[in-house]
Design a protein around this nucleic acid. Structure first.
Length: 542
DNA sequence: AAAAAAC
């Protein structure tokens, strides 16, 4: 099967060839002829299957004849997130290179003026998120009466995000006679109902059983104490052959904390979540795609559909609460038949969430071990109910750390190994991966000898920490750390007590006016407003 | 429990 067999125009074929694609993916092979026939499509496909091109390619040819009138777009594509909308727009640029189609990207967070100007000039392709589209419609900037093709992408996600009323409203504004392409990774009853309402005699296309991660993704899961998660992540990052990775957190606040922690530890990281300004979001994603940033800490804004060429790894710093999100997240890697690796860091209280995920994907996620960490199990669900706060009440932290005594994964790693029972062949020795390409973030293997913790290293560790505190805060912190920091390969920082680590974390918070000698009891992070869209700027000021 | 999306 080749693209030449699909009846696409020479112009589109030329654009495809220049991008380097030769063979259509299964969904493209199935959907393109149907779309060309003008039929409705109900596509059940995971992201990463080439879904976007399955509608952009034939749409370009269909729209090639005819011209758009002012404010009357000829086609409309609805996307759940701004990033996805932007990605689809890029797709039209790419494959529509030899056509003169006009397009407009209507998303929030950007100026109205440019979008209105484009609408006035007339657009063949309108790509939008629901909110901004409705806003512009209510301002009288758009007339929907000429829309011939409607695409609803990621319908299940629109449902999750509560966009369905908006979508229904938008669809009610469109002509009844039109072609509709409806895509969803899953088909819960509510989505089926919508599909029935929007589509006429659709051709159903299903390319991968929903809820099954790409077979090319190697998965692993490790359970550690909450307070050890960052350390566990760093070790994984150093042990794995990471080219680039998405690191998912469940909360925006934690995205920010983890991003700063990783940056502090010398990793080349960026962050992406919905409280950031749109320009910053766009810029960060661009940098990640250009490999200027290696690790992107993100919320679920990036969980679905975002297409990053050759993403080597996905890490779940938090277990996703909704099992489907697990599939979406790890589906960012292993795309287009490539290999990908996905690791999940669970806390002892995530048992039931992990269970739900394993039930959904129909198999257990292989447990891995991280050198130097004790194997921790899940707490029974009863206790999970009153999950301990992520940040225990603050004291000086001293008593806590003393009670914990010399906890430190190191020295007890050996013992943990006996826990491995059920599926030894599946155990991924995360700390000593099979020789693949070397890690970008860390070339040397993580310490293998879990025996003694040299006091010298510990002291150096403390001094280093203290030194960092004395160092003036740079405003250009990100640039300063563009290269991984080649320190502490031996995992000596493992034994930092929890209080030390907490202090380290508070170190991230902007501290005003106390200089270096602020008393410890005052070292609380500044309480910030819920919206932290300017967090980067705040940090620079601090 | 949290994320996303309009101002």
């Amino acid at each position: 099967m080749s693209f030449d067999d699909l009846g696409l125009s020479p112009e589109v074929l030329r654009a495809i060839a220049e991008v380097g694609y030769r063979e259509p993916t299964p969904i493209q092979a199935q959907a393109i002829p149907i779309v060309q026939m003008g039929r409705d499509v109900l596509g059940c496909a995971q992201t990463g299957t080439g879904k976007t091109a399955s509608f952009t390619l034939p749409m370009i040819d269909i729209l090639a004849s005819g011209r758009a009138r002012a404010r009357m777009p000829r086609s409309l594509i609805l996307e759940p997130t701004r990033e996805l909308a932007a990605q689809v727009a890029e797709n039209f640029d790419l494959y529509g290179k030899y056509h003169k189609l006009s397009q407009a990207l209507l998303i929030g967070g950007e100026s109205f003026a440019d979008q209105e100007k484009k609408l006035d000039r007339g657009v063949d392709v309108l790509i939008a998120t629901p909110g901004r589209l409705i806003d512009l419609f209510e301002r009288g900037k758009i007339l929907m009466s000429d829309v011939k093709i409607l695409v609803i992408d990621e319908a299940d996600r629109m449902l999750d995000m509560g966009f369905i009323p908006d979508v229904e409203r938008i669809v009610s504004l469109l002509p009844k006679i039109r072609q509709t392409l409806f895509f969803s990774a899953t088909m819960p009853p509510e989505i089926k109902r919508l599909a029935d309402a929007f589509l006429m005699n659709p051709k159903e296309i299903s390319v991968a059983p929903p809820a099954s991660p790409a077979a090319t993704v190697t998965q692993g899961l490790v359970v550690v104490q909450d307070e050890d998660k960052r350390e566990a992540l760093r070790r994984l990052l150093r042990a794995e052959p990471v080219k680039n990775a998405l690191i998912f957190c469940n909360r925006k606040k934690d995205v920010d904390i983890l991003y700063r922690s990783l940056t502090k530890h010398g990793f080349n990281a960026g962050q992406l979540h919905g409280d950031m300004s749109q320009p910053k979001r766009t810029e960060t994603l661009e940098k990640f795609k250009n490999d200027e940033i290696t690790l992107l800490v993100c919320s679920d804004v990036a969980a679905r559909g975002i297409d990053i060429q050759g993403l080597s790894h996905v890490f779940n710093f938090d277990v996703p609460i909704h099992a489907e999100d697990y599939i979406h997240r790890i589906g960012r890697t292993g795309r287009a038949g490539r290999e990908g690796r996905a690791f999940t860091i669970a806390s002892p209280y995530d048992g039931r969430f992990v269970e739900a995920i394993e039930k959904l994907i129909g198999k257990p996620i292989p447990r891995i071990e991280i050198e130097g960490f004790d194997a921790v199990g899940f707490e029974p669900d009863a206790e999970g109910g009153r999950r301990r706060g992520r940040r225990p009440a603050r004291g000086t932290g001293r008593g806590e750390s003393e009670r914990r005594g010399g906890r430190g994964g190191r020295g007890r790693g050996e013992r943990s190994r006996r826990e491995r029972a059920p599926e030894d062949e599946n155990v991924i020795a995360a700390a000593a991966p099979a020789a693949a390409e070397p890690a970008v973030v860390e070339e040397r293997p993580v310490a293998a000898e879990p025996t003694e913790r040299p006091a010298r290293a510990e002291r150096a560790d403390r001094e280093e920490r203290a030194g960092r505190n004395r160092r003036p805060r740079h405003s250009a912190g990100e640039e300063r750390r563009s290269k991984p920091e080649p320190i502490r390969h031996d995992g000596s920082h493992m034994d930092a007590s929890r209080s030390e680590r907490r202090a380290e974390e508070e170190d991230d918070a902007p501290v005003l006016a106390f200089g270096d000698h602020m008393p410890a009891f005052l070292r609380h992070p500044v309480k910030r407003p819920a919206s932290r869209s300017e967090s980067d700027e705040e940090r620079d000021v601090a």
